[in-house]
Nucleic acid binder design. Structure first.
Lengths: 201, 201
DNA sequence: CCTTTGTTTAACAATTTTGTCAAACAATAA
DNA sequence: TTATTGTTTGACAAAATTGTTAAACAAAGG
């Protein structure tokens, strides 16, 4: 008897990931995905039962993976500034690969707050580690390394400066008549700038 | 003969605005909108012909209005810092009313770059005024008021710090177990923080 | 009153998208 | 070879959504 293939299943999932998270086409139909993957649309149902299940799986996997990487950085035993630098590097890598992940999560959480509940509670010790990081931020403020503010706002500032430019790319392309490559360069330049800005230097 | 009503037409448009731009339900159907407005769905076609035309009108009006207000601030004859403070105030007002406007524009521009083309070219002298503002930023950097960087990145920083927290609200609500009111307070606190941060103070 | 004009409605048609099924197909173990 | 298991396909059904039409309705002028 033949062994399970997985090849097509993976192809469909990867294609869906690309379309949803990288290209930001949240309205893509099952047909769009099947076409992009070069397979019959029925296979999408064969492997994932429904569009919604495929959609959810893509987001769940991407989010789990992202959280995994970020928590690894936040939980590491490095000096604060280096930790932040790593955080920026890691998050930038993820954003380059999947610029629409957080925005889509935000949009869907907004429409059905219960649905992705588990994604935020499933990681044991997740909230704990987050609280520890906020405390670490607090200590750095007392040391004077970074400007005093609510630690949460430090956190939000950091992620705003990283994430938003990736989503707003089409707007700034038009607004400032930039090319795709020009904008990419800008994003790379920002990487250093974000750390400087955060450390008020 | 009866005069044109406009009452129902305005009601539908306002409701659509609320659903799309304030509640962030970009997948809302014509039925959803009609129900929310308390009118028969056919009226939506009677007044706007199609869902797409209504959708486009809502975004066009909102964007035109936003741009109008921002350009007024940018074009004013105030000292730089005060200009920025006004900008933050105005943009915060708009974001409070329509937190999803820019994100949706970005998403739709991304899917069909031609479609909203005119929104960026229609304002005569728009690009001119934008370039002038970038030059003004440049001058402030030379004066040492703000940190040296590409003026565009100063611009993007400012808008990232303002806009992203509004869209990412559902994520941070879960992540930090905040209430809606608690998050609103945070947003208000940020308002001052953004200006301080931008002016490196 | 009747006519005209604009509004509202329900019923219907068209389209788009999703989901199902049975049959064809391919690979491999027995 | 044949039986078995998993894969792929096209045809079809179902559902959801959008768009149209004709008729009912309401207001106001003649």
């Amino acid at each position: 008897m033949p062994v399970k293939d997985c090849k097509t299943e993976q192809l469909i999932k990867d294609t869906a990931k690309r379309i949803f998270l990288s290209e930001g086409k949240m309205l893509a139909t099952t047909q769009d995905i099947a076409d992009a993957a070069g397979v019959n649309r029925t296979l999408l149902h064969y492997y994932f039962r429904s569009r919604e299940l495929l959609f959810d799986m893509v987001f769940k996997e991407a989010l789990t993976n992202l959280r995994e990487r970020l928590h690894q950085v936040l939980g590491s035993e490095l000096p604060f500034k280096q930790k932040i630098e790593n955080l920026v590097s890691v998050f930038y890598e993820e954003l380059t690969e999947a610029p629409y992940l957080e925005t889509f999560i935000a949009l869907y959480l907004n429409q059905d707050p219960e649905k992705y509940e588990e994604l935020f509670t499933s990681l044991p010790g997740g909230k704990e580690r987050m609280k520890n990081f906020l405390k670490e931020i607090q200590r750095e403020m007392e040391k004077g390394t970074i400007t005093e503010m609510k630690p949460i706002n430090f956190f939000i500032n950091l992620f705003s400066l990283m994430a938003y430019p990736f989503v707003a790319r089409p707007i700034y392309l038009k607004m400032f008549d930039l090319t795709d490559n020009g904008y990419n360069k800008l994003l790379v330049e920002r990487k250093k700038g974000i750390v400087s800005m955060i450390f008020n230097k």
